Simulated assay, not measured.
Amino acid sequence: MPVIKAPQEFNVEDLFIDLRAVLGTALYLKCEGFNFAGSVKLKAAAEMVAAAERDGLIGLDSVLVESSSGNLGVALAMVAADRGLRFVCVTDPRCNTASRRLMRSLGAEVVVVEAQDANGGYLNSRISHVRDLCASDPRYVWLNQYANPGNWRAHYLHTAPAIARSFPGLEVLFVGAGTTGTLMGCARYFKERGAPVTIVAVDAVGSVTFGGVPERRMVPGLGTSVRPELVDESWLDDVVHVPEPDTIMACHSLAARGFLFGGSTGTVVSGASRWLAEKYPGEEPVAVAVSPDLGERYLDSIYEEGWLRDHFGRLDLPDRPDRSERP
């Protein structure tokens, strides 16, 4: 029976979904959304805060500040509440309403930066605002998820070993690329051990993380308008870029079978399915994809008809399975 004293102490590590019946592809999905923050970002938040405390960077009057599109902000708000610390999340208009409300419910201050950067995104603008806050008052402590080694270390210590335990014969691992913390932690773990695992990064079209051309991106989560300092392509074997309409189609295909996941998961599943079809036609390698979060926070966006129509026009979404002939 699990008994915890802090919300970040609980996370389900051994839940995987066999997506063969949904996708027609042999792919296992590691579900990271079953913790009190609702996403894989709780691991990074807990590790980065703990490391900052060990290093003496956080005092009683410190104010944590971070740039986030949503999930890490929620996770840091939760850890800060547990530690009795103030937290300011600097986000942008793409951050969904549910995430903003969650952060505020946990006692965080949420600042929405409206100015786009030169790449048409918001990351540079968010980081600039964070830097201005830190320059204005020494109490602000920026954990900097884009460069903080605690970000990837959390997944090196927890996420990757959990996958290795469940799938000792793993052949291909798909991980989405946002800050690249999950990606780099998992890649380092398997590569350092000489495991014969192909590491495939999944990114959004319009992201500049792997040298892509910057474009408008509406789904928060994966992709960046500024290359993260953590990324090191020498640990990776391949990169897949997924258009946002494909992300939405994958989300709705999963939802049609009762699995409601977030936009990042839709991107990873779509990219993994395409990559496996191209690289292993007619074969079934042991393949795992990491699902960062669940779908409840996206009900007002990728699962809302008006939002989809406004941003993507008419999409030919998958039909719900016909159950009319079932007894």
Rank of each mutant, 00 (worst) to 15 (best):
P7A: 14
V12D: 05
E13A: 04
L15R: 02
V22E: 10
L23T: 02
A26R: 05
F34N: 07
A37G: 15
V40C: 06
K41C: 04
K41I: 01
A44W: 05
A44N: 06
A46E: 14
A52Q: 04
R54I: 06
R54T: 13
G56N: 11
S68T: 15
S69D: 06
S69I: 11
S69K: 04
G70L: 09
L72M: 12
G73S: 01
G73Q: 07
A75I: 03
A77G: 08
V79A: 02
D82V: 01
L85F: 05
L85I: 14
C95V: 12
T97W: 15
A98T: 11
A98V: 14
M103P: 10
R104K: 13
G107V: 11
A115I: 12
D117K: 15
D117G: 07
N119W: 08
G121A: 10
Y122T: 09
N124T: 03
R126I: 08
I127Y: 05
V130W: 04
D132N: 01
A135H: 14
S136R: 13
R153S: 04
R153K: 11
Y156F: 15
L157I: 12
H158Y: 15
A162D: 08
S166A: 13
S166H: 03
F167N: 06
F167A: 03
F167H: 10
T180V: 11
M184Q: 01
G185R: 13
G185T: 03
G185D: 00
C186S: 05
G194C: 04
A201M: 08
V208I: 02
V208E: 08
G211A: 03
G212C: 12
M218N: 07
P220M: 00
G221N: 08
G223P: 10
R227V: 14
P228V: 10
L230P: 05
V231Y: 05
S234T: 15
S234M: 11
W235E: 01
V240N: 00
P243M: 14
D246A: 14
I248P: 03
M249S: 07
H252R: 10
H252T: 09
A255C: 02
G258K: 00
L260E: 06
T265Y: 00
S270Y: 04
L276C: 01
Y280H: 12
V286T: 12
A287H: 05
A289R: 00
S291W: 05
S291N: 14
L294F: 13
G295Q: 12
D300N: 14
E305F: 09
W307K: 15
R309P: 07
G313K: 13
L317D: 14
P327R: 11
